[in-house]
């Protein structure tokens, strides 16, 4: 598990934007909660529009994951971000444009939480 953690962490700081794609395809689709949790943290840590979109606007990933543990970790990481410009933009876009109502509702809740937190 230590190796997986290091690989995911390396992808979170990697200069190549393709790292988001790898995390999205392999990490968020893994059946193991621990791997999905690490992947969500890595995507939030990247703090790019592409990476944040993965954890906010996709059903079954990030804040919409089936595992409460993964969801709580993702929310904590989002709240801990110093630069919240990207996440607020993505949340607003998700609330306005996403087709899934569940995803919209979750994004609205997180948006409200972030407003209270800041």
């Amino acid at each position: 598990m230590k190796k997986i953690k290091n690989i995911i962490e390396a992808l979170s700081i990697h200069e190549d934007s393709e790292a988001v794609k790898i995390l999205d395809e392999i990490g968020t689709n893994c059946e193991m909660d621990d791997v999905r949790e690490l992947t969500a943290k890595a995507l939030v840590k990247r703090n790019s529009e592409e990476s944040l979109k993965v954890v906010v606007a996709n059903k079954g990933k990030g804040i919409n994951d089936l595992s409460p543990k993964v969801v709580m970790t993702t929310i904590n990481e989002l709240l801990a971000l110093e630069d919240k410009e990207n996440i607020l933009k993505i949340l607003d876009e998700t609330i306005e444009e996403n087709e899934e109502q569940d995803v919209k509702d979750t994004a609205s809740s997180i948006r409200a939480l972030m407003s209270f937190a800041s």
């Binding site: 390396a10 790898i22 893994c30 791997v35």
Partner: peptide
């Protein structure tokens, strides 16, 4: 390392 290589490594470890 290249991202593709990291992807392979991650799949292998999982």
């Amino acid at each position: 390392r290249p991202v593709s290589e990291l992807g392979e490594m991650l799949s292998k470890e999982i």
